[in-house]
Design a protein around this nucleic acid. Sequence first.
DNA 1: ATTTAGATCCTCT
DNA 2: GAGGATCTAAATG
Length: 212
Amino acid sequence: MPEARLARVFFASGAVPLAVALLGKRLVRVLGDGTRLAGIIVEVEAYLGVKDRASHAFGGRRTARNESMYAAPGTAYVYFTYGMHWCFNVVCAVEGVPEAVLIRAIEPIEGIEAMRAARVGARDLDLCRGPARLCKALAIDRSLDREDLTSSPRLWIEDAAAAPRVMRTARIGVGYSGAWAKRRLRFLVRGSAFVSGRSGTNSRLSRGARGR
DNA sequence: ATTTAGATCCTCT
DNA sequence: GAGGATCTAAATG
């Protein structure tokens, strides 16, 4: 099979276009023991760099924590929050411009056994439903911060079939950011049962499809 | 079904 | 020292 990995140019389009383009693509993670985990990206959020009050790079802040936001497009930005959670972003503007797309949910398609092992107690539907949950399921942590997704043997994104129907809403958990909290910069696959938030907010399908 | 509280620690001021 | 791009379990209607 030909490698379908997305190349640098794909990631260089800026946060909003990349956010939309990433929906329906396949996120791939290979563990140290060779286990391959993958899922279809169904929910993302765009963070628009220095002008975006909700962004870690707001106002040009550049610290040890968010340094990888300033790296080349296609770089991973993995950060720690709330005392226990990791979240994974894809950097998406030219080097020095800190825009990123937060990956919030995927629909698991490969390595589901390993994901269950990493997320004991969770229903299958919840394995990767939320930014911290998917990092837990895919074993994404600090060791993958600054990883180059265009060349890494551990983490990358592949092209996948059809472009899904996209729906957009305000971002989650950024109420502190004033007018920026209202901007509709969260993008999700319409009808997917694997997006985060209250079940039923996205579609009726999510009701019947629940549980193990 | 929906709401609330607590966990837990890294990062920046 | 304060607070966070969250999640889960427990409490409540």
